[in-house]
Structure formats: C-alpha cells, structure tokens
Write a protein that binds this DNA or RNA. Structure first.
Lengths: 239, 239
DNA sequence: CCGCGAGTTTGAGCAAGAGCAACGTTCCGA
DNA sequence: TCGGAACGTTGCTCTTGCTCAAACTCGCGG
C-alpha cells in the first residue's frame, strides 16, 4: 500500500495530462476524473517502480524522470529492454491481461509517476474516447522498437549496436548543450553494455576511441554526442 | 485485390472459429457474421502473406499451416522473430494503429488463412464481447516472448540459444512420433540460424553433435527431439 | 533412373570480443 | 579533509564462433 506521504495531497493540476497522447481528445472534466483516481509518487534514482513477476495490480504514467525496463535472467545477467520518457504510459500489463509484470521498471533518474489500479483500465478504455486507440498505438511502437533491437542484436557487430544504442537514447531524451546533444539521464558503461549485450570493458574502449575522434564527450555517468552524423555512419557500417 | 479463385465460394463452416480464443465467447450468429466478411486463401510453402513496409490493410487468422514472422535488415540479413500456429491472429498491425506491417509473414508450410479489411478491427472490438480482450492478451504473450528472445540473444552463448529455439518450436508445434517429438513444419539449419543470430555452419555442427548423443534426430528439413529433457539442460547451461 | 539443385557436413584459419587483472579517477559522505 | 566506494581505463590472454572452402547427400522433376 502507498504511504500517506506518497500520495499527492494538493490536487493534481489538470495541465499535467493535457496534450499527452492517451488523453489528448479529452475535456477538462474527464481529465479531472482521471486525476482524482490517480496516486502520485516520487522515486529516487535507482529504485524500482515495480518488479518482474510481481502482481500487476497498477498501471502507470511517467510525469517526470526516466525509467529503464529491465529483464533479468535466472543466472543474474540483466538487459535493458527499453527506456521510458516523461508522458509515456508504462507497466500496462493489465491491458494485456497479464497478472504479473513481465519486466522490472527502474528509475534512471529521480522520477515522478502517476498510477491507477489495474481494474480501472477497462473503465478508461470504455469511457474515454481515444484512450484505447492511443495506448495501443504506443504499444505497437514499443513492439516495433523491441523487434528492431532484436534484429540488431542478432545481426550487427558490437560497435554498431553500441552506436545504435547511443543514438536511440539521444533521440529519446537528447538535450542540446553548447558542445553537443546530451542524454538527459545518467548512463554508465555498464548500462550501455546491458542495452547491447556486451561487456562494460568493450563499451569503455569504444567510447574512448570515439572520444578521441571527437564524436562523443563523456564524464562519469553523463554522455553527450558531439557528432551524431558520424555515429549514424558507424551504426550503418561505414565506420 | 484477391482473385476470384482465392475466395472461398462454398460458405465457410462456423466450426472453423468456434473455440478459438478471440471468438470463444461468441454465439453462432455472430461467428456467421464474422465469417461472411472474411476472405479465405491458400498459400504455398515459402510464400509471403504480407511484407514488411507494405500497407497494413488487412488482418489475418491462420487456419492451417505455419508462418514465420521475419525482419530483414538494410544489408540483407534476416531474422525470424517468431512463429505463428493455427488458430492465431497475425498481421494485426491495424490494431496498433500502424499503417504498414512491421515485419514479413512467410509460410513455413502450405497454409490457409482468413483475413478481414483493417477497418473492421474497430467493429470487431466494439461488437464482439471478448474479442478485444483476447486479442490483446495474445499480443501481450507475444511481446513477452520477444522480450524473452531478446534477453537470450543478449546474454546466452550460441549453444543455449539454439537449444532454446528448438524447444520453442517443439512446444509450439511438437507432434509425437514413435521416436520422439517432431517439429510440425519444415526447418532448415539456415532457418534455425535465422532464429538465433548465428550461421548455418554452427547450427549444423551442434545438431550433428546432439544427434550423436541421441538428443535429436533429423533428416533434411525435418527435426525431431528424442530427449527434450537433455535439451532443457543445455538451454539452462548444464550441457 | 539420372542429374541437378537445395540443403548439409566438415575442416582449417582467424578475428572479435569476453574474461581477467591491475590501476586510475571521481564523487560523496563522515 | 580524508577515506572508501563506485565507476572507468587499459593491457594481455584465450575462447567462441565466424569466414572461407570444398565435398557430400538427399530428394525431386524430367
């Protein structure tokens, strides 16, 4: 159960949801209804919102921060399936008639998420025009992205996979800085190796080499791409 | 457009759909309605039902046969994302608001499929109780399976991946024979390497070795597992 | 029944990248 | 300000499994 301190006592503002795809076709009173049924909670960096195998009793919307969706193998290896950005629904196992979550959601940075009890999913899809359509659209995009990652993993050499992983993070969360485009959340070499099925050693060597070539800049846990075009070339094989 | 010869002129029998998950809660007249709007078509082994990138203008139900869902990379490598068995919906891109198919569907054996125009999807989910629920449940399972494959690909050595791929095919389409459990559709070494991101050479070596150990039996394009338990051990690392 | 083509087997060499080890650096909290 | 933990770098070794090459075999169509 959520502790009292975790619930958002001052009323949530309607502007939180307006404009987000699942709610874009709704009027203020409907958004009000939806918000009144939501719980809001803040999560420190590196904590789990839910874990693989646990009861899928709620579904979520990320308001602020970034999440990693992670699967762990029986022998402890883990891989990052995808990242979630603000405004996206996640943990929608209830929509797929699953009774447990198929993966773990970890915060990559301090985050804030709304959540609703699983049983409300069918209410939402029935009552709110466009909610189902937009949610399943998101799901379709996510499915496509995972298939994309799968094909990369199966056919591409490590260097290309790492380049592609960086580009994906930049596209999803890139912030312009004076020197390049920075990934908006902390990323370690280990994280990148978990996205690409390699080791942190190999990732470290690749980043060092790219840094020498002026393609990326990185401090500990922070990565910026200074020459995205070059990275695209690498990810397509013309390194 | 479908040619006349492809349409099933004698009325489709209602028993084709009864009992299949998406239609299990429906009465005969509703099933009649659904069938009357369907096109039926037969496909030779090795032909495409639809191709990646093409207009997602229909969705399908496999009545008989087996399909491979395939993605191809820009440089011509291809990987088999999953297999479709009789009774399953496929090509449901319309349900996910996609305007093109994200993958190609090839017949692994001679097959028969029904299909409906994409625009009917929303009619079906609105009119037929349980159709949406069951369809999205299938989708959820498929998503989970792809994530599973992705983690394997990223963390497991080739031998384990191949063992796991064989087990998946056996579980999905295994037919008991006097000597073991046979995969119900033709499978080449190349096919297996396309499922596991390796080469046909490596697969051939593995199968030869397993054959010597009495774990599998294979003729050209036909594979049977004689000792599934042993394969499970291999796929878990205790080779 | 023959011949061809698609699929398979096997060998040898080689390179990508994993594993291991040791050291360096940054950050944070006491 | 100091110490330690977490993260990163780099060199070396060793293995996995890919590449290339060549021969083999099954099964089908003519």
């Amino acid at each position: 159960m959520l502790k009292l301190a975790d619930r958002n006592l001052p009323k949530l503002d309607e502007s939180l949801l307006t404009g987000l795809p699942p709610f874009s076709r709704l009027e203020r009173p409907q958004i009000r209804e939806i918000l009144d049924q939501a719980s809001s909670r803040r999560y420190d960096e590196g904590t789990a919102v839910f874990r693989e195998g646990h009861d899928a009793d709620r579904f979520f919307l990320l308001l602020d921060g970034y999440l990693r969706v992670i699967r762990t193998t029986p022998d402890g290896d883990q891989i990052i399936v995808l990242h979630i950005s603000p405004g996206q629904l996640f943990g929608i196992a209830p929509a797929l008639q699953r009774d447990t979550y198929p993966a773990t959601a970890m915060t990559a940075a301090e985050s804030i998420a709304l959540s609703w009890p699983a049983r409300l999913w069918s209410d939402f899809t029935a009552s709110y025009d466009g909610f189902a359509t937009e949610s399943y659209k998101t799901l379709g995009q996510r499915l496509g992205q995972i298939q994309q990652t799968l094909t990369e993993m199966a056919t591409q050499a490590v260097e290309k996979r790492v380049a592609a992983a960086l580009l994906r993070m930049v596209n999803q969360s890139g912030r312009k800085t004076d020197t390049g485009i920075e990934i908006a959340f902390p990323v370690t070499r280990q994280n990148i190796s978990d996205m690409t099925g390699t080791t942190l050693h190999t990732v470290s060597r690749l980043l060092s080499s790219w840094e020498k070539q002026g393609i990326v800049e990185s401090t500990r846990k922070r990565i910026a791409v200074t020459d995205p075009h070059q990275l695209v070339l690498i990810s397509n094989g013309n390194g």
